[in-house]
């Protein structure tokens, strides 16, 4: 038996909206520690890792580890039916191939029950080591989204260069070139407005912009985004979900043949 209650159904809706274009089907792994999902996009260039800790839920019960394969577009269809301030309760048991989403209005006057068919998904589960990165940049998530969208209108790839003074995003295309340089900015009123650059050694990597633009769909989930880079390693783009977990996107760099 699995049962979990979230104060805001809108949070899960937003999470699924931010990843469903990248991965259409995925398996949620449920255990005593929480709900996890890890899936590659269909071209196996990027990977999404979602972690929702059990202590971030209002109620969380998982008698034993349990896998729930879901079509994320179908899940999104159901989550869209939740009211803005509805709570969400998820229920599933191994006896039937369904997960139930219960949407309850704040005054408890409306209770909606949606049952989603679960599916068997065969997927590779990858072990991602906790690596030390050469450079870690934290910046407002809206700023990162603006940069990748702006550069996406110039070129297909972005070259990211981190030095101790700044982080540069550069793109080139048929119409010309663009470089956006962000300096470290620590003296801000709100911590989420900071741009923080932690550099062990300088890095310079190139990535496909369309994936980074896709990752930035998660902007509404967190005011700040953390970008971790190491030479010839996948970039990690992390959105922290306050009090419950994170969504991390991994993207392999372009490597010279």
């Amino acid at each position: 038996m699995f049962e979990a209650q979230m104060a805001q159904a809108a949070l899960l809706k937003q999470i699924i909206e931010s990843i469903r274009e990248l991965i259409t089907e995925a398996t949620f792994e449920v255990s005593g520690t929480g709900m996890m999902l890890q899936a590659m996009d269909s071209s196996h260039v990027s990977l999404v890792a979602l972690n929702l800790r059990s202590d971030g839920f209002q109620l969380f019960r998982a008698d034993r580890p349990f896998s729930m394969g879901m079509n994320l577009n179908h899940m999104a269809k159901m989550l869209k039916c939740a009211g803005k301030d509805d709570t969400l309760t998820m229920r599933a048991d191994e006896a039937n191939d369904l997960v139930t989403f219960l949407f309850e209005s704040p005054g408890n006057e409306r209770l909606a029950e949606f049952e989603l068919k679960l599916m068997d998904i065969t997927s590779e589960n990858l072990g991602i080591p906790d690596a030390e990165y050469s450079a870690t940049v934290s910046m407002p998530s809206a700023e990162f989204q603006r940069i990748v969208k702006d550069l996406g209108s110039i070129g297909d790839t972005v070259e990211i260069t981190v030095t101790k003074d700044d982080v540069r995003f550069a793109a080139s295309g048929d119409i010309g070139n663009a470089t956006i340089k962000c300096r470290q900015l620590l003296d801000t009123e709100k911590p989420e407005d900071r741009t923080l650059i932690e550099m062990v050694e300088p890095v310079n990597l190139t990535f496909a912009l369309r994936y980074l633009i896709n990752f930035s769909k998660a902007t509404s989930l967190a005011p700040s985004v953390t970008i971790k880079l190491s030479t010839e390693m996948p970039v990690v783009v992390e959105y922290k979900l306050s009090d419950i977990g994170y969504v991390r996107f991994y993207l392999a760099p372009k490597i010279e043949d």
């Binding site: 990977l47 590779e124 990858l126 072990g127 991602i128 080591p129 372009k254 010279e256 043949d257």
Partner: peptide
């Protein structure tokens, strides 16, 4: 031109 490697090649299979 630059190649695009498979993301799985960077991680270990479980």
């Amino acid at each position: 031109s630059a190649g695009q490697p498979n993301i799985a090649s960077f991680f270990t299979k479980r």
